[in-house]
Design a protein around this nucleic acid. Structure first.
Lengths: 194, 194
DNA sequence: CACCAAACGGAGTCGGACTCACCTTAGGGA
DNA sequence: TCCCTAAGGTGAGTCCGACTCCGTTTGGTG
């Protein structure tokens, strides 16, 4: 049940090459074609499709790795800052990450917009990481409670799906507004917790 | 310079039919094919392409009309409620509008994500409408100042680009958080105004 | 080193958006 | 009323990208 077969050496190498090529391609050009990615990886399209069912599956895998990296951030930030500072830092980190890799925004967007099982793990992991951050803050009375990581994650989707000019300043402002909204123990409530 | 030629009667009729067919098609099925839209309108694809350069141009026009409708809302709400209540009502109205027409979310997303001149008018109009709302609120001391309609609009993009299950409750919560963040005269600031 | 299942290559299929050469018709003028 | 003509309509065909399929190659095992 764990792994039926260990994957042949050349296959593993090609898989790696494809992921790397895809990452590069997506960073350079948002809608890179499968042929182009395969070429970069030095394989034929058939090989690409042996490893990834569809173009989207490849995209998903690349972004899953990216997201996993981001998921480690909240715990690290909590170790270094107060919970509310950690929250703010995380929001801004996310904006920065989006700036570095334009592809990232699309990833979050997809993660949010689909029910695809491909993204479920990433979503869950990220939500858990954020839950930790929010719960710690709420326990300290610094952040409003009753807000789940999943909800905040969706708010972030809006930040990262923007690619028009001047988006980055706007993203920082939105992150700040969200942060203030979360920190502020609101007079208004939004119904039962999600 | 106003209009070079007045457009023949049958052409105008077909144009209307296409827009109507497209609206229906997009409401029913997010990625309706051009053939399908043409069929619904009772014309051939060639006719569709005589009126709209690309599929996207057609989408843009349909959504431009939708957006124009939403743009009228802030002024109306201000006439009936206090500025902060009007703001909250508008945010929730937007969520509701998204619920009714799934296509709407994609529209806002596109409006935000592209620099396409197609959407410039809609964006500007909407931003102006929101500016009015925000400025009125700020003047009354009910809403933080220094926030432009454009910025809030981008925050809304996040609300409306969500289509996963349970999105609507989450959208309402995010709208509320944004609202609280905007109303709250923040201790923190987000740099100079955008 | 012989074998064979796993992996690879790449021409071919398929499904969309879009085009273009020809046909149809609204509507203005004689 | 009936041409005449340019605006408008048609739909088979092109193009282009994701994806498939089967003949060929190769890692790794006895």
């Amino acid at each position: 049940m764990p792994s039926p077969r260990p994957l042949r050496a050349d296959a593993r190498r090609n898989r790696e090459a494809l992921l790397e090529a895809a990452r590069e391609a997506f960073l350079a050009d948002e809608d890179a074609h499968v042929e182009e990615i395969a070429r970069r990886a030095g394989v034929a399209v058939g090989t690409l499709y042996r490893h990834f069912d569809t173009r989207e599956a490849l995209v998903a895998e690349v972004y899953r790795q990216e997201v996993a990296e981001l998921c480690a951030a909240p715990a690290r930030l909590l170790a270094q800052h107060s919970p509310d500072e950690a929250l703010r830092a995380f929001l801004l980190l996310l904006v920065e990450h989006s700036a570095v890799s334009k592809g990232m925004g699309e990833a979050l967007e997809s993660i949010m917009a689909t029910d695809s099982p491909v993204f479920d793990d990433a979503r869950t992991e990220m939500a858990r990481a954020l839950d930790h951050l929010l719960a710690t803050g709420a326990a300290a009375g610094l952040i409003r409670d009753g807000v789940s990581g999943r909800v905040v994650l969706r708010g972030l989707g809006g930040i990262c799906s923007m690619r028009a000019n001047g988006w980055q300043e706007d993203a920082i402002r939105i992150a700040t507004i969200l942060y203030d909204g979360l920190r502020h123990e609101a007079a208004s409530t939004a119904g039962s917790r999600p």
